[in-house]
Design a protein around this nucleic acid. Structure first.
Lengths: 217, 217
DNA sequence: CCGAATGGGGAGTGTCACTCTCCATTCATG
DNA sequence: CATGAATGGAGAGTGACACTCCCCATTCGG
């Protein structure tokens, strides 16, 4: 398959595929001549993966490149690559927020949460900042408290942790032990797409609850 | 407080606040002269809400304007406004996907899911498309099935539905019955920020599971 | 009274994800 | 074997977007 075939197979314009090749989002095809290359099923799947990360995961081109670079390097252990992917998917904290004293408080709440639930995270895991930012916002609007032990909020969050720890093992169960490419695909798609599905389901539950409480009255 | 004060209170540049005023994201202050207006705490909170939707919710300016327009109109019932907000937050399905036969199949799976779980949704709720897109992606990579009854996938999704229906009632419990502005703030922030927190916790659970399975080996 | 700040609004900027254009080379068809 | 379409490679251009700058007449504050 040449680039035109890859384009029709994926629905992505040729010019865009060339752009992805330049940016390192797509591995080069097997060159058959100075201006010809052969693409196969692995390229089709990779393009779909890239589109998923861009559209559903709302990552930037540079972030996708980061994720895939770590994922593709066979020297990098799969768990480390997974961590890189997670970090790339967590939006960076604005410096304005990082200097906010409330953010520091939220970070200690997050650290307690991680400790209490025995979550094994890399110390630099960006996802901790992500949670802290969400907590700051919730506290700002009075939906949780940071300044004192908040058993209501903490209990709720511990419940989330318990629930997702139970399902996380299942989510990883279908990841194969050896095939590196499949490992990457499964972890990335599993993170992004299952997350989108979960968010959709939660929003459905919220709309349902809103209808039952505020609807028709 | 004049616009300079609003700027220092929120950390948002004056030029940006003027831009938000122009775009209808921020209600005008009480005019005290032809070139002077008075802003109060409601403006500070509104700016924070806008920034939250833009940064944490990753909405565009136009989408935020949509959400807030429906939320601010006192003629619109709060449940309807909530629906508008939900729709604005769900990314539109690309037409390339809408024509995909797999998407149609996924929609029937979603409809069955909604029916089975007795979720009261508006027929046009965009969140159904959002879930369908996630399902297509999962199926594409072999993480679920659409072509036949998939008890494993459906059971998992029903478990998510049950879990979030249980927590949704609690999430709405702190929404007041009367104060329109607070209702809007709580539902919007509650959707976006709690969602971010949940995503962060799920990612933590995934990293933890990855460490336990692939780490140090 | 006078420099700084204000509201209003048009125009400019930087970023990003493409998208176009060009070229020499190669393929595919008649 | 001729010829038009397609290819790989790379620089430049495009359109959307979220600001950001600038200008003006007016008003505030010391």
């Amino acid at each position: 398959m040449r680039i035109g075939g890859l384009s029709t197979a994926t629905g992505v314009p040729v010019a865009t595929l060339k752009y992805y090749l330049r940016e390192g989002l797509l591995h080069a095809g097997r060159a058959t001549a100075v201006n010809q290359a052969d693409y196969d099923e692995s390229h089709v799947r990779r393009v779909r993966l890239v589109r998923s990360l861009l559209e559903l995961g709302r990552l930037s081109i540079a972030e996708v490149a980061d994720v895939l670079a770590a994922a593709d390097d066979p020297e990098v252990p799969i768990h480390t690559a997974f961590g890189h992917a997670q970090d790339a998917m967590a939006p960076e904290v604005a410096e304005a927020h990082r200097d906010d004293p409330r953010f520091a408080v939220a970070r200690t709440v997050v650290d307690r949460f991680v400790e209490r639930n025995d979550l094994r995270l890399r110390p630099e895991a960006r996802v901790c900042d992500m949670l802290a930012e969400a907590l700051v916002l919730l506290a700002e609007f009075g939906l949780t408290r940071l300044d004192e032990p908040d058993p209501i909020g903490e209990a709720q969050f511990d419940a989330y942790a318990a629930f997702f720890r139970a399902s996380a093992a299942g989510d990883l169960a279908c990841v194969p032990d050896t095939d590196r490419i499949q490992q990457v695909e499964y972890t990335v798609v599993g993170t992004v797409a299952v997350e989108a599905a979960i968010n959709a389901i939660r929003r459905m539950a919220l709309e349902d609850a809103s209808e039952r409480r505020f609807g028709a009255g």
